[in-house]
């Protein structure tokens, strides 16, 4: 397996030095930028990265703004480092197309685990036997191209959102628990106060809403999880 190359963007120079030491020792190639502007320039010219880690709280340009400028053109997976307890930052990060978030300060082991989970997910190629077009309620999902469309309209989903919808469409009429969804979609286990999967599900709902209208396709089952309503046709 060739070495993964990640870009670390944080204004705390000492922290980025320590972190790159830590990650390099774990076999990850790390490049560092200490400002969002520099990172923006670098990401636009250099496409060799497998993943980027953005700190949200940076002077001049925040990690959120950086992500906003990059998406949706750049498909690079992104992990956001948020201030802990800053739920609004966290949710905004996910809504803008971050793939996961981690509250800072954090144990570097946790960051490494998240990086590996996101990389695994991004590099995952659909198994050949699963390559079949799924269609439910007029929504067509193609696992081979990772494209979702409704009639002639294509629906733009982030990779996590695509995985959520893929899970739902593979298991219509089944209650999927939050912990199972987190494992299959985010490739990590659910932790306490973890709302990442809820945000991804609600984003999928929002993106489908203009096409399917008032119908509630994804139901919340209180205390259990989510259910994708079976299409009986």
């Amino acid at each position: 397996m060739n070495e993964n190359h990640i870009l670390l963007v944080d204004d705390d120079q000492e922290l980025t030095e320590l972190l790159s030491d830590y990650l390099e020792a774990e076999g990850v190639k790390v490049s560092v930028e200490n400002s969002a502007k520099a990172a923006l320039v670098r990401l636009q010219s250099d496409e060799s990265f497998d993943l980027a880690v953005f700190d949200i709280m940076m002077p001049e340009m925040s990690g959120l703004e950086l992500l906003q400028q990059l998406r949706p053109r750049l498909q690079l997976p992104v992990i956001m480092l948020t201030g802990r307890g800053g739920d609004i930052d966290r949710i905004l990060g996910l809504e803008m197309g971050a793939d996961d978030y981690l509250a800072k300060p954090c144990n570097p082991r946790e960051l490494l685990a998240r990086i590996r989970a996101v990389l695994r997910r991004a590099q995952q190629r659909p198994e050949p036997d699963a390559v079949q077009l799924l269609t439910c309620w007029g929504v067509a999902l193609d696992p081979s191209t990772r494209e979702v469309s409704f009639g002639s309209h294509s629906i733009d989903l982030t990779s996590a959102e695509f995985n959520v919808l893929y899970q739902f469409m593979q298991h219509p009429g089944e209650i999927l628990s939050k912990s199972k969804l987190t494992e299959t979609v985010l490739h990590r286990s659910l932790t306490a106060y973890d709302r990442a999967i809820d945000v991804h599900v609600s984003r999928v709902r929002q993106k489908l809403a203009p096409f399917i209208g008032e119908k509630e396709l994804i139901k919340t089952i209180r205390g259990e999880g989510y259910l994708f309503v079976r299409d009986n046709q």
Partner: peptide, 15 residues
Amino acid sequence: RAPLARLQVATGLAE
């Protein structure tokens, strides 16, 4: 938080 974050990473290195 900033020194704490660095402390945690440094601990990770020590680990």
